[in-house]
Amino acid sequence: MVTKVAENIVKSLEQIRQDIDAIAEHSDFNESVRLLAVSKKHPADAIRTAYDAGQREFAENYVQEGVDKIQQLKALDVTWHFIGPLQSNKTKLVAEHFDWVQSIEREKIARRLNEQRPDALPPLNVLLQVNIDNDPNKSGVQKKDVYALAEFVSQCSHLKLRGIMTILEADTDENQQLNSFAAMRSLYEKLQQMHPSVDTLSMGMSGDMRQAIHAGANMVRIGSAIFGQRE
């Protein structure tokens, strides 16, 4: 039996995909935009519903919760992203179970992930989290330190540098959002010139997706707009 919750997830996914396509069509950047479904605090059944509706990339913020879901859903062809703060004592689980990590901000964490990534798995895809607004309440590497960290990651044989991500301050107005996202796009294009593997600019969530896509995001991270309020 299809539940009301499942119906809502399917409808929401369809609507968000339409919204993304419509925004991208009026953007100055001729790029398709990938939708990353942020499934933290939602059950495996909700992920399965979204998967059945065509969604293939999912993100988790908490290591053990994410690993539990990965194991529950291992029969599905899902690409798993870790997007939360990552502490040293959790790097091994992430290195062993996830396909992407979007929250690298320190050389130490990158080194541990590289050392702990199993040889049998392909390189772990890595985004550097950039604190583009120098917000003391946000994680991320400072803009001036991005190039050195990118160079370090690019030398790690079990990691693959794919790009950068950011999370903006919660209370920024639309103009400030556009400026911050434009600064990220500029940084991304410079990194692309230095590292051919760079192809992903992850920025924009439910509240600022439009501004992010207009500024050149090619991946957006959407949670509650797909799955509803978290438990």
Rank of each mutant, 00 (worst) to 15 (best):
I9R: 05
H42Y: 12
H214E: 01
S154A: 10
N134G: 00
A183Q: 06
C156Q: 00
D52W: 08
D145T: 06
R106A: 10
W80C: 08
G223P: 00
D173L: 01
V33Y: 07
A212P: 03
G54V: 13
I222Q: 11
V126T: 14
T79D: 12
P196W: 14
M203W: 00
L191H: 12
K74H: 10
S154C: 05
A217Q: 07
R34G: 11
L86M: 15
G54F: 15
L128V: 03
G228N: 07
K41D: 15
V67P: 05
K190E: 05
H158T: 08
K160E: 15
Q102V: 01
H81P: 00
Q55G: 10
D199I: 12
N30P: 04
S224L: 05
E189H: 15
G163D: 13
F82I: 09
F98P: 08
N89P: 12
L124W: 08
E174D: 03
D135K: 00
H214V: 04
R162G: 06
P118H: 09
A95E: 09
Q155V: 07
Q15W: 15
N114G: 04
D208K: 15
A95Y: 12
K40L: 04
Q142I: 02
D208Q: 07
G54Y: 13
F98H: 01
R185N: 06
T49W: 00
F98R: 04
M209P: 07
L187R: 11
R106C: 07
A44G: 06
I23S: 13
I109D: 14
L35S: 03
A50N: 03
D19R: 01
D133Y: 03
A6Q: 09
K4S: 13
R34P: 01
Q116G: 14
G66N: 12
Q229N: 12
I9L: 05
R230I: 15
E25I: 12
A50Q: 03
N175E: 00
S180F: 02
V220K: 01
I83Q: 14
E189L: 15
A95W: 14
Y51Q: 03
G163A: 11
K143Y: 04
S180C: 07
A46E: 00
L86W: 09
L13W: 13
I164T: 13
N89S: 14
V198M: 03
T200E: 09
D208G: 00
V10D: 02
L73Q: 00
H214L: 05
K69Y: 02
I226Q: 06
A44W: 00
S157D: 10
A46T: 08
G207C: 10
L113E: 09
P123D: 02
F82M: 05
Q55D: 00
S88T: 14
R185Y: 09
Q192F: 15
G140D: 03
